[in-house]
């Protein structure tokens, strides 16, 4: 998997994480187990999990996942998320 920086957003460190195709379902299952089931927005065809330190949002296809960090988000928070996503820097 890889990630791409997204410009001009809520946080200077905003990325889209592109999951491998067969990792999409298990990854969202891990995220839901940690922070709750995703909410769907039918008119925009998006889904999201609102965690305390970031919002995880994607189209209904589940990939890529845009991670919008809150300002309070720490390196530990990011490390935990990366472990769940299976992302290594």
């Amino acid at each position: 998997m890889r990630r791409e920086k997204v410009p001009a957003c809520v946080h200077p460190e905003t990325y889209k994480y592109f999951l491998d195709r067969d990792a999409v379902i298990p990854t969202w299952q891990r995220l839901a187990a940690r922070w709750g089931e995703p909410r769907h927005n039918t008119s925009f065809r998006t889904m999201e999990i609102a965690a305390p330190r970031f919002t995880l949002r994607s189209t209904v296809l589940g990939n890529p996942i845009t991670v919008l960090r809150r300002r309070e988000c720490t390196a530990d928070d990011v490390a935990e998320l990366h472990a769940l996503l299976g992302y290594r820097e």
Binding site: A8, F44, T46, E48, T59, T66
Partner: peptide, 16 residues
């Protein structure tokens, strides 16, 4: 430029 650049990179834009 800034707002719509953010919007054009958002999942909402990608979805709809």
């Amino acid at each position: 430029m800034n707002t719509f650049r953010g919007i054009m990179h958002s999942p909402e834009w990608d979805g709809l």
